[in-house]
Design a protein around this nucleic acid. Structure first.
Lengths: 180, 180
DNA sequence: ATAGATACAAAACAAAATGTATGATAACGT
DNA sequence: ACGTTATCATACATTTTGTTTTGTATCTAT
């Protein structure tokens, strides 16, 4: 890929990320992104059709880093049998998420939430079903799955937005305690 | 209050509600609300400063109906001792929420989520603390509270958006099973 | 019933944002 | 070094936003 494209793309990502720290997705204009990134108007639209496209691209980027080496490699893992591995896996992911703290805080505080959570849940749905089979009986499995994913997402949000003082290991244990 | 004001306010609420069924909050323009409500431009701005003001007013309206006769009357209830009453209370609230299903679906599918959930959680925080004292030990209480609120909100969203076939009683029991 | 207050519609307006298009310039890959 | 292409600056039509003005209709209080 052309170096110029990379630089522009990164500049836009950085600008977007920086703005997300200050204001919510819905209140950010393309114009602001352009100004912050210091790129030409037409250049922005050459890269992204809309503000939503940018959001999606950014989510894809982040999740690729967070989940690639984990789930890609370990998708064959069956968490239903080895409970301890599951918590370790969660911890591992939390470490990755922590690296993206700056971006995630903005993305998690809804507005962008719908899109972001969509991606988030997409990945999580590959991890959780085999694990949650062990849990709860009377409630519909799809309900339990939805809640488990929601709780994980909210745990991450709670952690990154308000309680950075906890370690990934602690957060993982809180999460495990809550869903077990 | 002037009848004219009431009519206009209601027309705007209805228009907003109608639009929320079709598209997300972020993609709705004031212009569309004005057209749909069939009111003058200046009239809209006489009632609401911004689109966000409208959202807040609508949330206040809805929650007032949902929580007024419950929490107002029963705020003295101490749910930490009478577990069964708590589930009944939840069921009661679910019935009220069900009445506002049309509006809530739009409001819950994020964008407006940030604002709406803020209100939602504000009310829930008055209900839950005494109850969750009984639960979980190792995790921070504020974490458990956050997750409980989040689970309730997500339960409602899951129910209204995708699984209307369940009764308030069923949903309440699923919720209780999940958080107990 | 009437008088004063006020909510309303219609229109016009400036400012900002959106999305597209153009030509010139600079950086790129080979 | 050459052809390619990403970028910028500029311009433009369109839409949205929020304010203001003016005349009219409707309300409330007396």
């Amino acid at each position: 890929m052309d170096r110029r494209q990379q630089k522009t793309r990164q500049a836009i990502f950085n600008a977007f990320s920086s703005l997300l720290e200050r204001k919510s997705f819905g209140n950010i204009t393309v114009q602001e992104i352009i100004d912050e990134a210091n790129v030409g108007r037409s250049t922005f639209y050459a890269h992204f059709e809309t503000k939503d496209s940018l959001l999606k691209a950014m989510c894809t980027d982040i999740f690729q880093h967070v989940f690639s080496d984990d789930l890609g490699r370990e998708s064959s893992h069956d968490f239903s049998h080895v409970g301890h591995d599951f918590e370790k896996e969660i911890t591992h992911i939390l470490y990755h998420l922590s690296d993206n703290r700056k971006n995630l805080k903005g993305l998690l505080s809804c507005d962008s939430g719908e899109t972001f959570m969509g991606y988030f849940k997409g990945y999580l749905q590959e991890m959780f079903p085999s694990f949650i089979k062990k849990l709860h009986n009377a409630s519909p499995p799809e309900y339990v799955l939805s809640m488990t994913i929601c709780i994980f997402a909210e745990t991450v949000r709670w952690w990154l937005a308000e309680h950075n003082e906890y370690t990934p290991e602690q957060i993982a244990s809180y999460f495990m305690e809550y869903i077990s």
